[in-house]
C-alpha cells in the first residue's frame, strides 16, 4: 500500500452549516501529485460532494488558487511531497467571500479589473492596410513581466490591505493597468490615471510586498503599484500648481 498523507480540507455547505468546518481525507502521497491531484482523488474516490475550481492543471488558467497551509497557492503547482508527512491544510483563498467549500466569490475582482480598462486604448486606430503596430524588444520589455498575470487572485489573498479594506483596487488590477500604461501602443494612461488616483487606488497600498511574493508567475504587483504612484503624484502636483492649466 502506498504511503498516505492527510488532507485537512475546509468544508462549507451553507445549507447545512453556518461556518466552515474541516474534514480529513487520507490520500496517496505520490511524488508527482500536486494538491489538485489529491483533491481530484478525494472527489473521485472518497467524497463527491467536495467543491473547488480547477481547469488547466498547468499553472496558466488561474482557477485553482487556494490557501495551502496558510499560504496562497495554485493547487496545481503545489506538490504534496513538499508538505510530507502532513497533514496539509487546504482552505479557500483568504479575503474573499466563500460560496461553498473551496469556491470563492470573485465578482469584486472582475469588476475592479474592468474598471482599469485592461486593454489597448488608441486615440486613433491605424488603418488595417498600414499593418501591425510594431514594437521593439526594448518596448516589449517595459511591460512584459506585468503581462504574465493570470488573474488567479493569489495576490489579493496575500494582501492585508485588501483584507481590511475591500474597496482597495488591489494588486493584480493595478499591475494590469500598469501593463497597458507601459505599452508603447497604448494611449489610455490618462484615462486609467483617474481610476488609479482614486482614494481606493494606488494610494491605499502601503507596500507590504506580499502580493509579489505570492505571485506564481513572477509578476511584481507591489513594484507596479509604487511605479504607478509617480504619475499619480505628478498629476496631483500639477493640478495644484496649475489649477487652470491644460492637460
Amino acid at each position: 500500500m502506498p504511503e498516505q498523507i492527510t488532507l485537512r480540507v475546509a468544508r462549507y455547505r451553507p445549507e447545512q452549516e453556518d461556518s466552515p468546518t474541516f474534514a480529513d481525507y487520507e490520500v496517496p502521497l505520490r511524488d508527482d501529485w500536486a494538491v489538485l491531484d489529491a483533491l481530484n482523488y478525494i472527489k473521485d474516490e472518497l467524497d463527491g460532494t467536495l467543491s473547488y475550481r480547477w481547469s488547466c492543471r498547468m499553472g496558466i488558467c488561474g482557477s485553482c488558487g487556494m490557501t495551502v497551509n496558510g499560504e496562497p497557492k495554485l493547487a496545481c503547482a503545489t506538490f504534496l511531497s513538499s508538505y510530507a508527512p502532513g497533514p496539509v491544510r487546504v482552505e479557500p483563498l483568504a479575503n474573499f467571500p466563500v460560496i461553498r467549500d473551496l469556491v470563492i466569490e470573485m465578482t469584486d475582482f472582475m469588476e475592479k479589473l474592468r474598471r482599469v480598462r485592461p486593454w489597448l486604448i488608441r486615440d486613433e486606430e491605424q488603418p488595417v492596410e498600414e499593418g501591425e503596430y510594431l514594437q521593439t524588444p526594448a518596448q516589449l520589455d517595459e511591460y512584459r513581466q506585468f503581462s504574465m498575470c493570470i488573474n488567479c487572485m493569489l495576490c489579493y489573498a496575500a494582501c492585508p490591505v485588501y483584507g481590511l479594506d475591500g474597496d482597495f483596487l488591489g494588486p493584480a488590477a493595478i499591475a494590469l493597468a500598469q501593463r497597458y500604461n507601459l505599452d508603447s501602443r497604448d494611449d489610455g494612461a490618462a484615462r486609467r490615471l483617474t481610476v488609479l488616483s482614486q482614494p481606493d487606488g494606488v494610494w491605499d497600498c502601503t507596500f507590504v510586498g506580499e502580493c509579489s511574493r505570492a505571485c506564481p508567475k513572477g509578476v511584481d504587483p507591489a513594484g507596479a503599484i509604487q511605479q504607478a504612484k509617480v504619475p499619480s503624484a505628478l498629476a496631483a502636483a500639477k493640478s495644484l500648481l496649475l489649477p487652470w492649466g491644460g492637460r
Partner: peptide, 11 residues
C-alpha cells in the same frame, strides 16, 4: 438569497 449565505472571511 445566495449572497446572504456566503461565508465572509474576517482578517
Amino acid at each position: 438569497y445566495l449572497q446572504a449565505r456566503y461565508h465572509r472571511q474576517q482578517v
